[in-house]
Every structure is written in C-alpha cells, then in structure tokens.
Design a protein around this nucleic acid. Sequence first.
DNA 1: ATATATGCAAAACTTTTGCATACAA
DNA 2: TTGTATGCAAAAGTTTTGCATATAT
Lengths: 153, 153
Amino acid sequence: MAPAPASPNVHEEIDRRLARVGQRWTRGRRAVVDVMAKSSAPVSVPELHTLVGPGIPLSTLYRIISDLLAANVLIKLEFAEGFARFELDDTLSKHHHHLVCTGCGTVIDLELADLETVLDGTTALIRKRTGFKVASHRLDFFGLCSSCAKAAG
Amino acid sequence: MAPAPASPNVHEEIDRRLARVGQRWTRGRRAVVDVMAKSSAPVSVPELHTLVGPGIPLSTLYRIISDLLAANVLIKLEFAEGFARFELDDTLSKHHHHLVCTGCGTVIDLELADLETVLDGTTALIRKRTGFKVASHRLDFFGLCSSCAKAAG
DNA sequence: ATATATGCAAAACTTTTGCATACAA
DNA sequence: TTGTATGCAAAAGTTTTGCATATAT
C-alpha cells in the first residue's frame, strides 16, 4: 500500500540525476531525500524543517526542494491547504494515488494497480477527443479516514 | 465537454444555499458567481479581480470566496502554481476532471462519464482495503494542449 | 433595526532572492 | 581551485484579519 522503501538502487539513481544537472550531493540534500524516502505521504516544507531538525534554515530547504524538483527527484503536489507538499518522483518509488482525510487532514498513499490500466487507456481517448497529449495524471480521493469515520459515527 | 452554463435553476439553488447559512445575496457575490458560472475552467482570485473589475478589492474577493466555500457553492483547487483556483461545486454544474497543460499553464475542463463508473466502483474497494470512507475524488491529467504539442513538434 | 458584508490598512504565512561565506568536486 | 551550495536577512506574493462604515433583509 505504501510506496517501496528507499533502496540502494534509488540512492544511485538519485545520484545519477543530480550529476546529470551538475548538482552536488550535500548534507542538506541527503537529509531531505532521506526524509522523503522514509515518508509514506507527501511532506510540506515546514514539516521537513521539523523532521530534519533546525540545523538547516527554511530558505535553504526551499532552495534544496527547488533543485530536487529541477533534477526530477521530487514532484510537487498541492491539496488546497495553502502550501505545497513534495514526494519522491514516481519513477523512484512507485506510482500511487492519495487518500485525503477531510476530518484530520492526513494524506495517505495508496497503490491501485488495477485502476492504472483504465486510466492509461483513457489517455488515447482524451487525445482523440481533444488533441490534448496526456503525459501523466493525478488522482486523489477525499473522505474520512477510518478513525475520523468512527468518530463521526 | 465544458460544464453546463449557468441556468436559472442554478441561480435558485445558490440562493437556497446562501440562505441556509444566513448569507446575503449581494452585488459582490453576484459578480463572483457570474464569473464562475461563465468560466469553463477554474479561476484564481487575481483573475477574478480582473474579470469583475477593480470595483471590488482583493480582500473582499477573498472574503466572498471564503463565504461561498462555506456555503458549498464553490470548491477550491490547487495545481501546484503557488495559489488557489476556484470553481462552482460539482452539484451545481457537472462533475468533471481537468487537463492541465504543462506548456502554457492552461486548465481545461473535461467530462469523462465512462470513467466515472470505474472510479465510483473503486470507492467500495478502497473502503474494504483501508477503512477509508471515500466521499469524492479529483482526477487531473497533465500534458500538452494541442497548440503546445504542435509547437513542441 | 439589526445582523451581515464591505473597504481600507495592516499583518500573517509561504516562498523567493541578494550577497557574502563555506563546501564539494 | 572553481563553481556550486549555504546562511542570513530582506523582500515578494498570496491570503487573512481588525475595525469602522455601508448594506441587505
């Protein structure tokens, strides 16, 4: 259900992607990538700041995030919260969707391989109908997580 | 392909929703709802400011938006642009998805009735697998619109 | 008449940037 | 050594809020 944990292969692949755009493998980037690889849900910058400790200032975290986006190591997501969240690129972990709890705000990763087939098939249909050339998609489900559902009765 | 245009019925239904939470039907709200009803894609507040004219200050627009969200007249969307977009609630127009052009940033509304059946069926699966009680979903496709695809060769 | 909505100004919050210094290759 | 990354401080962009006034019902 959660994306694959960080493996040495992932680490090597990130290394390759940083090198490709002339980025160096620094303490700060290692810290950010480690947090992202361990997290089973997208992370915001303030959360990241807490998770990596106050050693790295927010401005640097934002710059690291921006660099890792440019290197195709991370992707950016927004859930109408007023700030952005980030997670490892699908090609580094596994393509997945999100369950967003409207009760407590928690975001849960979810793999739905069966649904992928349908969505991929839709790509051709959209192109024929509209001329739009789909490259990727994003699917979020909103509702109540099991504990919020219980609390609501 | 685009959502249904504003109809008298929609207007009445909005009226009802405002009344339900004790909100008044004012010049500013009428202006905002009119823009939303005419637009075939989600609108940002700065865009709204341009579209309704400078007569209504940004702070008031933000407050109107906030009120209309609370009255379930609008929904809030974010596309990783750094700001939010808004559109009429699905129950006032028609449930649809979005094509987001990564070339020019344009967002296009798209109805995919056939896909809805599959997605609705997925709800039960998710609940059984995870205990998460899905209430709604959101599906965005990213890629190049026909003109950007042409420009890219 | 009375509660709600607006306008203006100020502030809060997220994110970006300039510049001097520190660090990776 | 040389270009890239960091830290600090300041700024920019989006969104929120306090308070007095205006407006809808």
